[in-house]
Nucleic acid binder design. Structure first.
Length: 255
DNA sequence: ATGGCGCGCGCAGCGCGA
């Protein structure tokens, strides 16, 4: 089973890239983030033509997440239970007995800001939710844009980013708390690739200078982590005209 | 990293992302 994740930064703009990518990379499941469109704008027909079922939690202008799957999506649930939130940032579904969550963690804007506080609250609620999901679904994969670079090795210039949003210690602690109930960061399960980043700023030629961060992740429960054969970051779509600022990531699970 | 770009909204220029 191949499970992928991609923050597309506007599905309307990026649909041609997504369709081309799925033709070359026929993954079993992919979580999408930052759709920036409502459910009734979602390109169901184009994706169905490629053989994908879809479950959508859309929102106009901001946020919006989805799951695409070659096999039917069952037990679809939207948002974090018990967490009052206008943002459409989470969708879950079960595929062949594997529970998959696509998450778009808040950006946080700046350390100490209201949005930063909201981000930490959201991550805390997600950690609580993962504990209960794991109890029900031992085969659990959480994919998405976590907006946290877990360690200095995930940052092109750790000194410049030291203590900044995406890299601050409270955010990193909140990320580790997601792993505490028994999840593994798939990136850490395989040999480290030469190029570890998944996001590059649009400005200042950051991509061409490889000034990036690793903030898009695939978390696997212990039931799945043992099957993880590879973790790929596909930088090819980032070279296209009008790219998303994020690269798709793929975890390959054996058997 | 001072900012630089790209998106949506909506028709100018701003809020937001990371």
């Amino acid at each position: 089973m191949k499970i992928a994740s991609w923050n597309v930064n506007s599905l309307r703009v990026r649909l041609p890239h997504l369709l081309d990518w799925l033709r070359s990379n026929p993954v079993d499941v992919i979580g999408l983030q930052e759709l920036k469109l409502q459910d009734d704008q979602f390109p169901l027909a184009e994706l169905a033509a490629l053989g994908y079922h879809a479950a959508v939690n859309g929102q106009k202008t901001y946020n919006g997440v989805a799951l695409l799957s070659r096999r039917p999506l069952e037990r679809v649930e939207r948002d974090l239970p018990g967490f009052a939130d206008d943002h459409r940032r989470l969708i879950a579904a079960t595929v062949d007995g594997v529970r998959v969550i696509s998450a778009y963690v808040p950006n946080g804007q700046a350390v100490g800001s209201e949005k930063y506080v909201y981000k930490l609250r959201w991550l805390e609620a997600l950690a609580g939710h993962l504990s209960s999901e794991l109890a029900r679904s031992p085969q659990l994969a959480v994919v998405g844009d976590f907006n946290v670079a877990p360690a200095d090795a995930d940052v092109h210039d750790p000194a410049a980013w030291d203590g900044q949003v995406l890299c601050s210690e409270p955010e990193r602690a909140a990320f580790r708390a997601l792993l505490a109930p028994g999840m593994a960061d798939a990136f850490t399960l395989v040999p480290r690739p030469e190029q570890p980043y998944t996001w590059w700023d649009y400005r200042a030629g950051a991509f061409h200078r490889n000034l990036g961060l690793r903030i898009d992740h695939i978390l696997l429960s212990s039931g799945l982590a043992g099957k993880c054969a590879s973790f790929q970051i596909d930088t090819a779509p980032r070279r296209l005209e009008r790219p998303s600022d994020h690269a798709p990531v793929i975890a390959h699970l054996n058997e």
